[in-house]
């Protein structure tokens, strides 16, 4: 073995090729099957897609680095399920390009934050977190309410999402900019938006300001949809592949006296 190496280390190209081969094996075995094994992601025929406003909000969430402090992945541990709700399923982030599972909880998990607080609370909290939670260490995001949302090119965003596998229709792409405005303007004609994205689409003046569609509108719309695109987690019978991770949930209860 060492004799062979003694010869290999005299040839730079052989050494380089050997490094590439040895280093590729792990990734190939762990990642490639995730695309081919059907059980990896549960099926949910009723899964909704992000509306243009929610997608714009998601991009603001990414831009501001919210994922650095907030996870969106409830693990199969009892305390997490009791604190945040049913554990996250793979299907729930299947339209998340990129995923935002996060790696750190400086703040709480947000996978199921949608609908837990009012729009007003979110707006006040984002403007100055310490107005509503005195001990909070979250940054202020007051400027989001002052920044008008750029909607003109949202069709490009939807088209790129479709290119990577999210089922946006031509009508959704063509109407993206108008739909983004409509979702934050309940007084306007929202029939087209609801027709395209479903009855459960949340149409509200998210930041309370009816005059303009701000970045605050988009971010609050996104936060309010978190955990609501799929109902798979609430219907465990439907979630076939979830059975694979279920034993871990019992194991996680060890801290309970």
């Amino acid at each position: 073995m060492f004799g062979t190496h003694y010869r290999i280390e005299r040839k730079s190209v052989i050494l380089a090729v050997a490094i590439m081969i040895v280093a590729s094996i792990g990734g190939l075995i762990e990642i490639a099957p995730l695309f081919t094994i059907d059980d990896t992601v549960e099926t949910d025929p009723d899964m909704r897609v992000y509306t243009p406003l929610e997608l714009a909000g998601r991009n603001i969430y990414i831009r501001e680095g919210c994922y650095a402090c907030h996870s969106q992945m409830i693990r199969t541990l009892q305390d997490e399920v009791e604190r945040y709700g049913p554990y996250s399923l793979a299907v729930e982030s299947k339209y998340d390009h990129p995923m935002l599972w996060g790696s750190k909880r400086t703040g709480p998990d947000l996978a199921r934050i949608g609908g837990k607080y009012s729009d007003q609370w979110h707006t006040a909290h984002l403007t100055n977190p310490r107005d509503v939670v005195p001990q909070s260490i979250m940054p202020r995001y007051g400027w989001l309410g002052r920044a008008q949302l750029h909607t003109a090119h949202l069709g490009d965003d939807l088209r790129a999402m479709r290119a990577v596998g999210v089922p946006y229709t031509d009508a959704m792409i063509a109407n993206a900019a108008a739909d983004a405005v409509a979702q934050a303007s309940p007084d306007d004609d929202t029939a087209g938006l609801v027709e395209r994205y479903g009855e459960e689409t949340q149409v509200r003046t998210f930041d309370g300001d009816r005059r303009t569609v701000s970045e605050m509108d988009a971010l609050v719309a996104y936060l309010q949809i978190l955990g609501k695109l799929s109902k798979a987690a609430e219907q465990p019978a439907k979630a076939v592949a979830a059975a694979a991770t279920a034993p871990a949930a019992a194991e996680g209860g060890q801290a309970r006296p």
Binding site: G26, G27, E30, I31, L34, F35, T40, V41, N59, A90, V91, E92, S93, K94, Y95, D96, H97, P98, M99, W101, H153, D156, D157, R159, A160, M161, A163, V164, G165, V166
Partner: peptide
């Protein structure tokens, strides 16, 4: 591999990751 993405426009900075959800999570941590 990790940076495979589709730009929203060649005239803009924003792009969307080629992978989503669980596959993206594994690729990112790989």
């Amino acid at each position: 591999v990790n940076n495979l993405a589709v730009p929203a426009s060649f005239a803009g900075a924003k792009s969307y990751s080629a992978f989503a959800g669980v596959q993206d999570a594994m690729t990112q941590w790989w």
